[in-house]
Design a protein around this nucleic acid. Structure first.
Lengths: 109, 109
DNA sequence: CTGAATCCGTTCTGATACTG
DNA sequence: CAGTATCAGAACGGATTCAG
């Protein structure tokens, strides 16, 4: 069985695009505004360069984010949500709401 | 850095509960109706007994599903969505819709 | 500054065999 | 029928070093 994506399960497709500890945090950072590599690294506490680069690269290939390189010295690279990535907003939001309710319910025990 | 759950990110909480190749497929099976262990095993093509048991156990601990044991021989165990698990419906659905659209957009290239 | 490359320990998965 | 136990390979994650 390959990577994931169980044939006809679009839910899994969606999940696979986000399932990695950091991607969701990256998206959260980009919801507001475009950010530079260094900003992401600083803001997302605990992420290693490897994981950040890797996640960004995959998300770019998946067309969830856009990568813009400026021909400057020193280099400047900006990341932002792509059009497709932007459509994740409502999902992210409903997951956030659900997560909050879940934590409340669970902690009541 | 532990498991996941980035301090105050409810989105991650939600994601963590589902992020395992099989859990989402299990939920899908249970959306309609209660199912027995063997049914799940047969219906979810490719899942190993270990992964199925493990996922079910975790989901039960997370209170996403209910496990009902019947004192019979041979044994009979039924799984169904819990009240909390049931509230995932809209999220599952929006993820499904998003996944479908995503696949369409991507395949247009 | 923005990464790529490497090394290495941890975790996750899956096949198989076995149990009450 | 409904699991558990074991074991090995794959994938993941992080620290560090190097490069344009």
């Amino acid at each position: 069985m390959e990577k994931n994506t169980h044939e006809n399960c679009p839910v899994a497709t969606t999940l696979n695009l986000l399932s990695n500890k950091w991607k969701i945090l990256i998206i959260r950072e980009l919801l507001d505004t475009t950010k530079r590599y260094g900003e992401l690294k600083r803001n997302i506490q605990g992420v290693s360069e490897k994981m950040l680069s890797q996640s960004l690269k995959e998300m770019e290939q998946d067309k969830l984010i856009k990568r813009t390189v400026y021909a400057e010295v020193p280099p400047k690279v900006e990341y932002s949500l792509s059009e497709i990535g932007d459509t994740l907003r409502p999902i992210i939001n409903s997951m956030k709401l659900w997560g909050v309710e879940y934590q409340e319910k669970i902690s009541q025990n």
